[in-house]
Amino acid sequence: MAVPTVSPTGRQRTFGDDEIIVSKTDLKGRITYANEVFLRMASYKEEELLGQPHNIIRHPDMPACVFKLLWDTISAGREIFAYVLNLARNGDEYWVHAHITPSYDAAGTLVGYHSNRRTPDPAALEKIKPIYAVLLAEERKHENKKEGLAAGQWKLNALLAESGKTYDELVWSL
């Protein structure tokens, strides 16, 4: 597990609206493909990424419950959209509007996962940031990661219940 040891610089990176950041993983989330834009934004070489777990670009400010939901959703065969803050190799960060989907072979067997990331809408980001802050704060109340994750999930569900929306509806409404 190549958990990044670099500390965030707080510097923002951006990419073009006509670009998409692409990566594919195996069933365990190990990177099997990363496109040019991915390599550029994350500041990794292809060979440094292939075979690595995707959390190689995880930003510490992302709530764990979002990834938990991500995995629960895609492993159930459904797509998910998420605004994700990523960490470049040097500690710089960049927001993406990620779309993660299961990949099937011709026989219809689940063979891995795929992600396309597009430039996020700034207005949407401003809405999601405070939500993530709340979730993160909830998770950080707990020393134990499992308990923190559970608390974050509980909080996320509470927020959704409050808004009267499903997670999908919420993300699409941003």
């Binding site: 998409i20 040019e36 795929h114 396309n116």
Partner: peptide
Amino acid sequence: NHLLDMTDAFVR
């Protein structure tokens, strides 16, 4: 790869 990514994205 780019072509495939775009095609893949479109299909998905």
